[in-house]
Amino acid sequence: MTTNLLEVTRLNLGFQTSRGVLKALRDVTLHVPEGSIVGVVGESGCGKSTLIYAIIKLLAANARFNGGQILFQGRDLLPLSTEEIRKIRGSQISMIFQDPMTALNPVHSIQRQMLDIQYRDQISQNEKKQRAVAMLEKVGIVDAARRLKHFPHHFSGGMRQRIAIAMALLSKPALLMADEPTTALDATLEAQIVRQLRELQQEINCSILFVSHHLGLVAEFCDRVAVMYAGEVVEEGAVRDIFHRSTHPYTRALLECDPAGIKEKTRYLPTIPGAFPDLVNPPRGCIFQDRCPRVMDQCRMQSPNLIPVSNGHVARCFLVNSCTSNASLLSETVNREP
């Protein structure tokens, strides 16, 4: 039995807006086992990024937690003061941001930025520099000692993202959170970076929480996957559970809509009919009810909990209980008509 490095339990987070409280995360439960890579997928606006910013509490001033727990190495992060959470950020939990162009400071050299990030360590500047060079070499930057003097604009997009990864891993974190780390890069680079990330993860033995909307990358890279929709985790399980035995109608719809998964050439791509719910006034009952083809009376009355499907595979859907033939779900969820 592996232990969980990170356990998010029934987390609720709202943003105060002029229209009322926008319930951005509702009842989010997620586990990151030690030494594994967990993918978080979902459409834009579903709360993927909000979730990882909530974990390190990098949130706007109008954000309010409404209950829940974020256990990291057995310690709840929610009640921690700003001072205490700062000690964890960047040392035990570090982060790779989406856009490598803006994640680095353009007016400082890479050397200055890579030394500054080690401000906690009581070692000489020279040792810090050696560590920076070693880490840059690990992420595949040739002639690292010389290039350390260069500024971010001297590097291409892929190199900058490699530098950002090197900086995130300098402190040998227990948990690395990557927010769409390859979205800004070309496909050939995307594969390079992700493979490198996987090698580094095994070398320093950390866990990765990998946020992406690229289903192909998640399938290749992750051990476990959580699917989010409108601020809720609707399904979570091992990567094969999600990609081969998905139970929630939303997960199925999402997988079916991905043109990469469509083997036959078609002029008309499937879509999910309907619109995203309003999170200021979320509907009573299941959050996916208005777009779900299998909606039942029960779904409009009460909200389903995460129900176990099999060992380590849960789905927030009443169908799990009443499920007789899952296969019939497949072709109903999405709109195939032109």
Binding site: S156, Q192, R195, G216, A219, E220, F243, H244, A260
Partner: peptide
């Protein structure tokens, strides 16, 4: 370089090095 959304799909051996 276009991974398929299927974890059991054999991974492509062909991988480009370097950048444009």
């Amino acid at each position: 370089a276009n991974p398929s959304p299927d974890p059991d799909q054999p991974k492509s051996e062909l991988q480009l090095e370097g950048e444009i």
